[in-house]
Design a protein around this nucleic acid. Sequence first.
DNA 1: AATCCGTGGTG
DNA 2: TCACCAAGGAT
Length: 289
Amino acid sequence: MSISPAVNAWFRENGRDLPWRRPGFPAWGTLVSEIMLQQTPVVRVVPRLEQWLERWPTPPDLAASPASDAVRAWERLGYPRRALALHAAAVAITDRHGGVVPEDVPSLLALPGVGDYTARAVAVFAYGHRHPVVDTNVRRVLARAVEGVAEPWAPRATRDLPLMESQLPADDEEARVTNAGVMELGALVCTARAPLCDSCPLLEQCAWVAAGRPAHVGPRLRVQPRFEGSDRQVRGLIMAELRASDIPVTSAEIERVWTDAAQRDRALAGLIRDGLATGSPDEGYTLPD
DNA sequence: AATCCGTGGTG
DNA sequence: TCACCAAGGAT
């Protein structure tokens, strides 16, 4: 028994009115939104996305700007490597695809910052192609409703894609709604912490509920190290300095952001290695371009 | 394949 | 308070 009929009916009634679901929303907007949404909540993405698309309505528009502008416009969305990747993707789309976001999964996968999830999300949501789209929300819904376990497994394409494929209707448009609907269900109802089973359209066919909602067995997935005092925090502080300055940031200014010299140096070297910063102790440091 | 990569909201 | 969580990708 497939979950798609109940999910599709629920989604058409309860899906959020998000920018990327507007009729006529461009494929470029879908690509930008999907990259912004990687590990970043919807509420933080929406305003930044709208500003981004107003400034850079097409890939060639972004490709014509320096990467530093992209990193600044990214502001505090987090993981600024994504801003750099998105800029590089815009250049690649302009050079290799005539400025038009490609439709096929292999071409999308070849773009910087585009992985297994994002490639299929663009092919399905922007172009209406029929593919399974599996993110953490989908994996959690499949784990519970289909497999009957409390927590999703680690991402694995060879397991995730066939499982979601087995839940998709044959029709392209219905399959697209199922992809969006399962994801939305995971985001709004079948949540990680406290699932709202009482208002779930799959309550009566959920394998996990049928099994008595057994607790998770085994180790937690992807335990995050603490942020306070981490290299990530130091990188973030340095990036904030670089974003805020139109002239090179001096070594002395960088020294002021973090007292531990070894950690500071490690963070700065990492940023330079990632292409998020350039410069030297003598000339100071700037964003790329 | 395990680890790294930001930031902010929340129960 | 603080650990958990958030439409992953690259290496």
